[in-house]
């Protein structure tokens, strides 16, 4: 077999792999969307779920998903970005640094159901936050934090050494160099990473089963006082998210239109995650252009 032949075989194998990957994605997405899109309607999106009767919607679940996502991001982004900056800029190679890095990696690879159990024991029971938005967001923080740390660290490492030297050589302090030069330059890639991780958080279910709970009180969307028990903004009420809803409806739903609700919810979830991805790409592109000159 000559080298030309080998080359051709390698090329076809690689193309076949890529095609298989694309085929899996397209068929899965297509299946979910075809099954579910027909059940999505304004009514479906803006009606509360009904436990027994047909015709329930996913209004509360959709809201909960976004609310948990926002709280999680408020918790993870500041801590994660600071941690990433520490690892990229300040940490000196040594035992402590490699220990921290191992911690981040282990944290990132924890099975989410384990994170959920941990969240139930620590946040729900020990700290007494109950099944709540806050417990759920804390559990999601545990597994989203390492992602943000990694994204930030990679964003900084991708910058050229010359930028940092340029700042320091101008008599800027290390922190000022980070704040005014490195962080803005790394911002597009960090932001893209954050939005992509938001997609993952949005679709997470296992970690939320035991932390955010399987039910939602009757939310009054006219009541925006965070302290009131049926306010959508209340942090300490239970909050079933969309992906948890899909699971619970599928396993124990007793309403007659279980299948429709599950399909519709799945489609909404997938569409949201897709939108996050598209949004991340577009934003990354726009910001990149803005930085690299018109």
């Amino acid at each position: 077999m000559n080298s030309k032949m080998t080359n051709r075989i390698a090329l076809s194998v690689i193309i076949a792999c890529a095609a298989a990957m694309a085929a899996i994605l397209v068929s899965m997405l297509g299946y979910i969307l075809v099954q579910g899109v027909s059940s999505i309607s304004w009514h479906f999106l803006t009606t509360s779920a009904s436990p027994f009767l047909a015709g329930g919607g996913i209004k509360d679940q959709l809201w909960n998903s976004f609310y948990v996502l926002v709280i999680t991001m408020l918790l993870t982004v500041p801590i994660g970005v600071c941690g990433g900056i520490y690892l990229a800029e300040y940490a000196k190679p040594g035992r402590l640094t490699s220990f921290i890095r191992t911690c981040v990696e282990v944290l990132a690879s924890l099975p989410s159901i384990v994170v959920g159990m941990f969240g139930m024991l620590v946040f729900v029971n020990y700290f007494g936050f109950k099944y709540s938005v806050f417990s759920g967001a804390l559990a999601l923080t545990v597994f989203n934090l390492p992602v943000i740390v990694r994204v930030t660290e990679d964003g900084f490492h991708a910058l050229s050494r010359h930028q940092k030297e340029g700042g320091l050589a101008l008599g800027l302090t290390h922190w000022h160099t980070i704040k005014t030069i490195l962080l803005p330059a790394a911002f597009p890639s960090i932001l893209t990473g954050i939005i992509l991780s938001a997609g993952r958080v949005f679709g997470e279910s296992a970690a939320l089963l035991f932390t955010a709970g399987l039910s939602t009180p009757d939310l009054d969307f006219g009541n925006w006082n965070p302290a009131s028990p049926n306010s959508p903004l209340n942090l300490f009420r239970s909050a079933e998210t969309l992906s948890v809803h899909i699971w619970s409806v599928n396993t124990g739903g007793i309403m007659p239109d279980v299948q429709t609700i599950a399909n519709g919810s799945a489609a909404v979830l997938v569409i949201c995650v897709l939108l996050f991805n598209l949004f991340a790409r577009m934003l990354g592109k726009v910001i990149n252009q803005k930085f690299s000159g018109k």
Binding site: H162, Q163, E165, G166, A169, L170, F291
Partner: peptide
């Protein structure tokens, strides 16, 4: 470094 400035081989303007 404010009194002794430096210019590098690779032009490194900030973005």
């Amino acid at each position: 470094r404010k009194e002794i400035g430096m210019v590098f081989q690779q032009p490194n303007p900030f973005p």
